[in-house]
Design a protein around this nucleic acid. Structure first.
Lengths: 219, 219
DNA sequence: CCTACCGATCGGTAGG
DNA sequence: CCTACCGATCGGTAGG
């Protein structure tokens, strides 16, 4: 599994912090940080209890705010959820591109799939995860317009998998139609949110190796 | 895919209707039917909007009842959800056993896996599905005690897969640890609830074939 | 099952 | 961000 070690550094969510002038408009900077923290805590609650069962008062309490204050940052509960999904997906696309770009140019299709799988586990289960799992499990909560907005980004994320799967199929290393295989593989990985435990027996590298073996035969 | 055709008859939910004396206590029989219909309609709503976002008034309206009437059949909204999951899982265990029992005695491990996968698609996506998808996506809504109650049944359902996966691994037809493979495979199948369309290009038989090829190599 | 009802909670807002 | 507040909705119940 030489394909996986370089990925740890590309954890999403940590990357794009505002660079330069880190001190000047302290008010503005704090606003951004607070907004982000609100999204973080909200996402955690959405994931644990579900969006509908999480009250804006729960979120406020998790921030040490009073009940009306979240509405200073987001005009509605739905707008907060939308921001979580949208910014989560934007970060995922960015970190996925970085992960692929860090690959050696001579890397073969199996190595590319390994990077994609490892990165996907990272955004699902890694220390800076949270937004994407919310997206996966609260998709039906979005309005049609919101869904379209997130879909545009999500499509880009998923599209990056297709050439890799198609190449594997041509090599005889993937024994299913690439389009269907992609759906099954995403399902297999996404489902890990339901059973993965941080203290459990599995590491993300280990799971990546098992997944590659399952989908592409013994490595 | 000779392993799949016999399964259509074993659709869960249709099987165990009260046999014998189909006429006598009409009131009682109707009560049972109404209760079942309530669970059916509630499950549909739970799946479409989520449990917390579905009001007991929504459910009553879907039944043509007034707002207080669901509580004649279930003492609480949570008890209704629990009944959906519990009876759904009980039916799934029964129909899975029937599906395996209908297998030819000389069927090999791949054929057994085919039956398990095809049956699983049936309870997820078939015409009488609904309860199991609710269980999958509302698991966190249950209380700890309720979770334990459903887990007992769910464990039996999942346990039936392990000897098949272990045998495939021994044959070299499954290239991952059986325990991990089971988690990935369940994820791949369960996720289909999110993307499968009745009018879409896929049939349950076709998906079963693709899944077998993906997980166990070319058939 | 319906009627009539209630206490609690919720998302959101005005004004500072 | 807090204070103070509101209209709407929700799960559930008593009594028939």
């Amino acid at each position: 599994m030489a394909t996986t070690s370089a990925l740890a550094a590309v954890a999403p969510g940590t990357a794009q912090r505002p660079r330069g002038r880190p001190r000047k408009a302290a008010g503005e900077l704090d606003e951004g940080n607070r907004r982000r923290e609100l999204m973080d805590r909200a996402a955690r609650l959405f994931l644990a209890k579900g969006y509908a069962a999480t009250t804006t008062r729960d979120i406020a309490a998790a921030m040490g705010m009073h009940s009306g204050s979240p509405f200073y940052y987001f005009k509605s509960k739905g707008a907060l959820l939308y921001a979580v999904m949208r910014e989560g997906m934007e970060g995922a696309v960015r970190s996925q591109q970085q992960a692929l770009a860090a690959l050696a140019p001579e890397a073969d299709a199996r190595a590319r799939l390994g990077v994609l799988v490892r990165h996907h586990f990272e955004i699902l289960l890694g220390p800076h995860s949270g937004f994407i799992p919310v997206m996966l499990y609260e998709w039906r909560t979005l309005t049609a317009v919101q869904r379209k907005g997130v879909s545009r980004i999500k499509d880009a994320y998923e599209a990056a998998w297709m050439p890799v799967l198609e190449q594997l199929a041509r090599q005889g290393a993937l024994h299913a139609e690439p389009a269907v295989a992609r759906l099954f593989i995403f399902g297999a990985l996404n489902w890990s949110v339901q059973w993965f435990k941080d203290k459990g027996p599995h590491t993300l590298d280990g799971l990546t190796g098992q997944a590659l073996q399952l989908f592409t035969g013994k490595a």
